[in-house]
Design a protein around this nucleic acid. Structure first.
Length: 873
RNA sequence: GCCCGAGUGGCGGAACGGCAGACGCGACGGACUCAAAAUCCGUUGUCCUCACGGGCGUGUGGGUUCGAGUCCCACCUCGGGCACCA
């Protein structure tokens, strides 16, 4: 809610500054308290059937959000939902052309297959392929595709989870059930095709650096080389970021799941190896968190040939090598990689240095310099002079930089066909199926051959059937062999459908999985631009007006997007991906969905536990002398996100009831910077209420209810304060520093209050700008005051006040005087006083002279209007 | 372990390298009141001093600078993220 109020305040401010503003969460809701609307729109829009609305209401009530559910499920819901399916079909109907680095319609691929410009997956000519094979050839390249993927099957929830929804402990984020790795046929999104653009375009966004960094790490591009090692079962391909250390590769390690493990393992090792593989598989699922992390591994009896020196090196398996990254196999260079080093030491494998570390490295470890690694306590990573790195046709010896050595060896590898430079990503394709009820059904049907067909656009949306029971079938949480039963699979008459897809009416089976919650949030910001359009998800002209690039090279996108940092790598990456596909296909003019991003902090709250560790209702806890009591019993205080389990929720409704929406808004905005998390303290709210009450009394006589402002000229110092306030508040609002903006407004009002209390009425010439400045922050009170001040229009549309630069200049400034950096006195000067005048006044000042005690200044520093520093001895 | 972020009064927090503690809460004192609430006025980092004034103060220890809450180095604590990424 904090962030949503933040966007509302900023949007109102911008409107007053003369912009057309489309505030997504307040588009048609200026009659509603915006935060109420904002909170409810946090619930994801879904299909708008009566049964679903009723269910949504129950959900909202359960979450403690007692708002009108019909508001949150807006009347445009079905349109929204249909267009999500439409966009899915657009993505499904596209493929990624690597050569052009962009998505193109699948029809282009079909033409290119047919002309032979692009080879079919198995290399056979297009003309020889049967219709089913043609379908499969196209499906293999789609941006949305079906694949047998290792998935996180969570029987306890009855659904499959994305990697990101599985905790480090190998359990479900929601419910904390065990999660098992299983291969299942799932919808995938080819987000990896966009890895480079998602990475590179971060540089063009106005986002917080930490968030950009998180996305960069998530995409995880590393450059290096693929290198092939010959073995009895053919080449073993590895990925390495350090091909320059190839001469130091003394063994290889495969992931236990690597397909060659079976083939390569010698008979005498087979028993041990299979035991290890089984143990690793179990371990990966159950206790990946085991921190003890001893580097276990097993020799499989086979050897491979190091291509640079022909050395026969042993092949091991170890669970620290992951099948899901790179090629699932590594070359181990113990002298240059700490994990390999530990592994080699633990298993008595040879270590050969490929570089002579600098002297400081040896000093740091307290050992004598030597290229013999026997004495080394750790691997060496960094620039050293290459040694032991030569064969008949290439030599790295004597080189001193990783960059240079890498370039030379990669060229050599490429020339001989042993490998090539490559780029690897940590990013995986996105698992897009869910076995739930809540979610957009895929607009996909399957024929008797299992081929997926798009449902024609004029039949969208594919509606969810009304159900009495929405839950996925939860199964025994520990039974990894069970299969998911999505709720839609239980509705046979919905599942079977007769369609004419161009070859006469035939029976098809609908896809029974649904899309994940991310689907709608991948593009919802655009629907707000054009919520009732039923010809397009957004009119192209409308999109260009609101979101189009501001100048050449600009990414376009919404001007401000406020959200929690928890979306740093999921929602924000997925939405960027969808947006880029839509851009490539010509549906939008912006390359990015969110040009400026701001992460708001969380509002947290204190929670209390009794002696047994049970949380007690926070509102009933009393504080006495720094200790806390509940029903007479002392309780412990802790701090965390507001939530049911901690019994520390304060609902907005309570705040509206007790203080009104404006006080609530003001309090949330004033408690600290927007991007910081901070504790809720209901006791402090009263401060903002008092502020608004004082403001009210400065304008309205409480007894008579009449407006009491003074129309005569305003005292000089009050005018200056007003203009300083305008300038300060303007800058603060622009940069979302609402807390300091509010402080300045309170100061101005306090000055007014003083005047009113001393018997003079508040001047209209100050009150009106004050009300205008307050209007973005507390719109309701501002409107009321504006009207009481005799205006017929709404203050929302009145311009923000403009500061007069002439009035920002003071006629005199007070300047502190330091002696040796310590403040000893103050002088008053004209704002344009010269350096000499500063020094003269400073030396004449009584306290300064006392502090100098007759000593001659060695040096004086003058920062005009800010400080004078006199340095003695 | 790695990567981000943050440590300032009793509390939430202010502070372009230039008067640390704006603004708010709380506390204390006063005015108003028969009284209380509300409201208004004042005090409120800490220590010494009747006072003038002075000492000490932004997690810890160093450093840069005429001058450091702010910049640099090391460390400690807390919050968040990622975790065997070759």
């Amino acid at each position: 809610p904090l962030g949503y109020i933040g966007t509302d305040v900023w949007a109102r401010f911008k409107r007053m500054k003369g912009f057309n503003v489309l505030h997504a969460l307040g588009y048609d809701s200026f009659g509603l308290p915006a935060e109420q609307h904002a909170i409810t729109t946090g619930i994801h829009p879904r299909v708008n059937t009566e049964a679903n609305i009723a269910n949504m209401r129950r959900q909202l009530r359960r979450l403690g959000l007692g708002h009108d559910a019909r508001r949150s499920v807006s009347t445009t819901d079905e349109g929204f939902y249909a267009w999500t399916q439409w966009i899915f079909l657009a993505i499904h109907g596209a493929w990624f052309d690597e050569r052009e680095g962009r998505a193109r319609p699948i029809a282009d691929l079909e033409r290119m297959y047919a002309s032979g410009e692009v080879p079919t997956p198995d290399g056979r000519p297009w003309g020889e392929l049967a219709p089913v094979e043609r379908h499969r050839a196209l499906d293999a390249r789609r941006l949305a595709y079906l694949a047998d993927a290792p998935v996180n099957w969570c029987p306890g929830l009855g659904t499959i989870l994305a990697n990101e929804e599985v905790t480090a402990e190998g359990r479900s984020d929601i419910g904390n059930y065990p999660v098992f790795t299983r291969n299942m046929r799932q919808w995938m999104m080819r987000i990896t095709a966009y890895a480079d653009r998602l990475l590179d375009d971060l540089d063009r966004l106005d986002w917080p650096e930490p968030i950009k960094l998180m996305q960069r790490n998530w995409i995880g591009r590393s450059t290096g080389a693929r290198v092939r090692f010959a073995s009895a079962a053919g080449d073993i391909e590895v990925f390495t970021t350090r091909p320059d250390t190839l001469f130091g590769a003394t063994f290889m390690v495969l992931a236990p799941e690597h397909p060659l493990v079976h083939v390569l393992t010698t008979e005498d090792r087979r028993g041990d190896v299979e035991t290890y593989v089984a143990a690793a598989a179990a371990r990966a699922d159950v206790d990946r968190t085991d921190d003890s992390r001893t580097k276990t591994g097993m020799f499989i009896g086979a050897h491979a040939i190091n291509p640079v020196n022909g050395a026969e090196i042993p092949v091991w398996i170890a669970d620290y090598v992951l099948m899901g990254y790179g090629t699932g196999a590594i070359m181990a260079v113990p002298s240059g990689d700490q994990r390999d080093f530990e592994f080699a030491r633990a298993h008595g494998l040879p270590i050969v240095a490929t570089a002579m570390p600098p002297a400081e490295w040896f000093d740091g470890h307290g050992i004598a310099p030597s290229v013999a690694c026997a004495t080394w306590p750790a691997a060496f990573i960094g620039d050293g002079v290459y040694v032991n790195s030569a064969n008949d046709t290439v030599s790295l010896d004597g080189l001193a930089s990783i960059e240079e050595a890498t370039a030379r060896i990669v060229t050599w590898l490429e020339d001989r066909g042993h490998g090539e430079a490559t780029v690897t990503y940590r990013l995986r394709d996105w698992l897009f199926s869910r076995q739930r009820y809540w979610g957009e059904p895929f607009p996909i049907v399957f024929d008797e051959d299992g081929i997926a067909h798009a449902v024609p656009a004029d039949l969208l949306p594919v509606r969810l059937p009304d159900l009495d029971d929405f839950t996925p079938t939860a199964l025994d949480p520990d039974d990894s062999a069970s299969d998911p039963v999505p709720p839609l699979a239980r509705v046979e008459q919905w599942r079977r459908v007769v369609l004419d897809l161009g070859n006469g009416p035939r029976e098809y089976a609908r896809e029974v999985n649904v899309m994940p919650q991310w689907a709608g949030s991948c593009w919802y910001e655009m629907r707000y631009l054009d919520p009732t359009n039923d010809a397009a998800f957004v009119d192209p002209e409308v999109e260009r007006y609101w979101m189009g690039p501001r100048e050449p090279g600009h990414t376009g996108g919404v001007d401000l997007y406020v959200g929690g940092v928890e979306h740093a790598v999921l929602h924000l990456l997925y939405a960027r991906f969808w947006h880029k596909v839509l851009f490539d296909l010509g549906h939008v003019s912006s390359e990015e969905p969110f040009h400026r991003l701001f992460n708001q902090g969380y509002i947290q709250a204190f929670a209390y536990r009794d002696a047994r560790g049970q949380t007690v209702p926070a509102t009933e806890v009393e504080e006495r002398d720094g200790r806390w009591f509940w029903q007479g019993e002392e309780v412990r205080r802790e701090y965390g996100k507001m939530g049911k389990s901690l019994k520390n929720i304060v609902t907005p409704d309570e705040m509206y009831d007790d203080y009104g929406a404006d006080t609530f808004r003001l309090y949330e905005m004033s408690m600290g910077p927007l991007d910081a998390s901070r504790p809720w303290n209901t006791r402090d709210v009263v401060g903002m209420q008092r502020f608004l009450q004082r403001l009210w009394r400065n304008v309205v006589d409480e007894d008579s209810g009449t407006t009491v402002v003074d129309d005569s000229p305003v005292p000089e110092d009050l005018v200056r304060l007003l203009h300083r306030t305008i300038a300060g508040v303007d800058a603060d609002m622009e940069h979302l520093r609402f807390n300091t903006a509010i402080a300045k407004l309170i100061e101005l009002n306090n000055a007014l209050t003083q005047q009113v209390n001393s018997g003079t009425r508040a001047p209209r010439a100050v009150v009106e700008p004050l009300v205008r400045m307050l209007s973005p922050l507390c719109p309701h009170l501002a409107e009321e005051l504006w009207s009481r001040l005799g205006h017929d229009d709404t203050v929302t549309w009145v311009p923000f006040p403009v500061a007069d630069p002439a009035l920002l200049v003071e006629d005199s400034v007070e300047v502190p005087v330091q002696v040796n950096g310590k403040v000893r006195g103050r002088i008053v000067l004209a704002p344009d006083a010269s350096d000499e005048e500063h020094v003269a006044a400073a030396l004449a000042q009584e306290n300064v002279r006392a502090a100098l005690d007759g000593q001659e200044p060695v040096k004086t520093i003058v920062v005009r209007g800010r400080t004078v520093n006199i340095v003695v001895k």
